[in-house]
Nucleic acid binder design. Sequence first.
DNA 1: CTGTTAGCGCGTTCAG
DNA 2: CTGAACGCGCTAACAG
Lengths: 336, 336
Amino acid sequence: MSDRGRATMKDVAALAGVGLATVSRVINGVPVDPHLTGRVLDAARQLGYRKDTAATSLRRADRRTNTIGLVLQDVANPFSSALHRAVEDVGVQRGLLVLAGSSDEEPDRERELLGVLRTRRVDGLIVVPTGAPDGELAAAHRDGTPIVCVDRASPVPGLDTVTADNRGGVAGAVRALHDLGHRDIGFVADHSSLWTARERHAGFVQAAGATRPAWVRRDVHTAEAARQAVTEMFAAAPAPTALVTAQNWLTVGARRALVELGLHRTVAHVGFDDFPLADMLDPPVSVIAQDPAELGRRAALLLLSRLDGDTGPAAAVTLPTRYIARGSGEIPPPGR
Amino acid sequence: MSDRGRATMKDVAALAGVGLATVSRVINGVPVDPHLTGRVLDAARQLGYRKDTAATSLRRADRRTNTIGLVLQDVANPFSSALHRAVEDVGVQRGLLVLAGSSDEEPDRERELLGVLRTRRVDGLIVVPTGAPDGELAAAHRDGTPIVCVDRASPVPGLDTVTADNRGGVAGAVRALHDLGHRDIGFVADHSSLWTARERHAGFVQAAGATRPAWVRRDVHTAEAARQAVTEMFAAAPAPTALVTAQNWLTVGARRALVELGLHRTVAHVGFDDFPLADMLDPPVSVIAQDPAELGRRAALLLLSRLDGDTGPAAAVTLPTRYIARGSGEIPPPGR
DNA sequence: CTGTTAGCGCGTTCAG
DNA sequence: CTGAACGCGCTAACAG
């Protein structure tokens, strides 16, 4: 055996005094004479043998690497990391490892990541697509790599998707505000290049109808920008009596502005997407919650079924959202 | 060429009308006749060729896979995911991909993950160790795989470590409370099996000296358990005038208890580890902050230097913590 | 059931 | 400079 570098099957075979294929069989659980099995396992243990996944997948007929690629917006983002964890949990039961990367919403970075993952010959891909037309995604699809888009619609036709009912969630919350008596409702959303932001806006328009343009702020991307947008919105007269913010960081920035203006107990406020400690603010923040873990779990299960040979038409799973009334969304308009 | 499955170097060579080795040279940037280079690149583009990382690393002399393994407590935990992102950012500049997994503090799961990562022949490992003696870690070390332990001390002698100054951070915060006049200080910490929990406790003891046993609660693992522990601590007389909680979820649970008891504006409270929205609670929560991203960045840089051949003795980097005064820790004791 | 042999796709000799 | 031959560690097909 070589003592620099790891032991190989050949080393194990030599030490156990059996053929190479017998070692392969034992290691892979193919029935073999129990006596030989013992000798092989002993030799393997003695040498600290671990089989080489790269060589295995190179030789196997199906070329499986037991690895799936996961392209997220940002692995450090709570939404993304909850999704990541759910994918990991499903994968681990099948012996799949996850290669995760962050696109930061940049199409170039997304392409690069997908390229590297393709080079790694991952068995499948789960992607939160930036939405830009993406040759790598299309190429991976043509290569026959199963791909599931999650959280957002696919930029490439024919891919499985798992998304939340963004539109319906916002529309429902707006209707609830309307039922409370609110007629003047403001709206703050993220970059319109994002499918989710467009969907949430569509839900708002669907339920709120036409409103003053100054009360609808789109392409707001950071908590700080949301703080400014909301400050402006409520500095001018007339101001809305209720506010819907379409992303969790925007919700936090908006709340900060409302506190600064002394309006946080006066203006009704509902955010899209739940966040930690939302219930510990004063008043607690009502939200339209989606379940990132469930999005990830469903995407992973869908991918597994494709890996198992399911060749049915592309699935489009839509998961419901859930309104969580905590207080901030239940404030009535003035004079009611 | 094969149309099912991807194009190989052979396919590219055939299409370009050159030898296999020439394609290899062009793809790997070894100088080649510019005319041939063009033909090869054209053919590669035309076939959507991507070189196969598995085959590459199998054949290369150094066996590099350009992959590093990252074993975290939980990829979905904000601390872990911030660290993950920092590792990714350092790695991406070197073309390294990250295989991340969650140990959930379970030694068995940790061992299994490390085993799989070893099978993948990752170039290096960054691990938040559970602390249990771990044969896989030791074996990987013996194999010559560079390993950096981060956030916690290494269970295996001779590994590089990057940790925060847990002990000094807590001791400093306790001294600040003492300077404010506090003499009766409670303490709540996580499982004593965790190195960080033991260090933070040591820092508390070092600065606070002997206190009533009922005011020191260890092995408290969840926000809910912290809520109960703090409720009990302040239900009995005498109760402390200040409280230090040694982990962010425990801090949140403790604050919940203080609010329920109506003591959140009366009892001084300092938490270890910052968390989102700590500044938006009332009163804002003072914390001993560590920088998970910096921990990850330093660990990754240390790993890279090992990959570059640094064979110096094991490094033990300790990063300072930073006290963030927001209000809750600046409440004086009654009658002062 | 076991052993032998031939490649998987690529990098790296070695001749030309 | 280029191309042919070899082998990395393993599995699949075959022969015994």
